[in-house]
Amino acid sequence: MTSSAKSANRPGVGWALLFVAPATVGLVALYLWPFLSTFVKSFQDVPAFGPATYTGLDNYAELAGDGEVWQAFGNSALYTVLVLLGIPLAVVLAALIEQVSRGRSVYRVLFFLPVVTLPVAVGMVWRFIYNGDFGLLNYVLSWFGVDGHYWVADPRFTIYAFAAVGVWMGLGINLIILGAGLQAIPKAVYEASALDGAGRVRQFFHITVPLLSPSIFFVTILTVIAALQMFDLIFIMLRSVNNTALADSKTIVYLFYEKAFVQFQQGYGAAIAIVLLIVIMIATALQFRLQRSWVFYG
């Protein structure tokens, strides 16, 4: 401290430590320590009251043989794959918005509205639209002679119903990120290809998609991570109204919530969280491996 204080234009280490202290204390107390305690608890039986006991790998063994856990991972995986279908849609819409000059901001605002609407409110509105007896969706489908269903009361359809809402909710965010990526593509590239007689569709597949692929990759990573953590929609559409379809529609984070904070089996809940972490890490690493074959860094 004294040596650096001597040179007037270099601040002392003391100042730096003062600056990072609040963030570091918070990080250690509220993130690092809870993370380590989750890890430790996953090897323990933690009763709601009284001391925890170490049970080794019991939680993980139980988890591996628990049909409910497998079903929850299956539901989350299905939901994630379905929500990924929204990404090509977002790429096309982002490219379309980029082509127009008038009304661009109006479109952006409209597509962004679901992002700034409370997810709980979104879930309530869609639950009404999905109502099997008098919901809007079944009514619209009846115009085309398609049979209606109990979309959120029949476990065969719940995950698909959630995924449609997930795509609708995520579109606004994806459009903003992809839009920023599109603006970084030099206009000259399009002009040159137009002189060569390339049409819009050709330009989309041969210029837009390859040059936008880093942004598409980024959006894909974020979408997978968010989709694997889906909780709000299932809570609001099924749990808060005691819908019997809940039993077969649980997602992994919903199951974690139920075990750790409703049944207060925190050891078992912690083990589920650790497995979730591993799944997200594998999914992300896999995408980084796969990107070599399709992401183009010009």
Partner: peptide, 24 residues
């Protein structure tokens, strides 16, 4: 090293912190 710790926590899904945060 300290900044590396921040980045590491950045990559952990929020559910991993909930049990400990609730306890505190």
């Amino acid at each position: 090293v300290l900044f590396g710790l921040f980045v590491a926590m950045l990559m952990v899904p929020s559910q991993l912190f909930l049990i400990g945060q609730y306890g505190l």
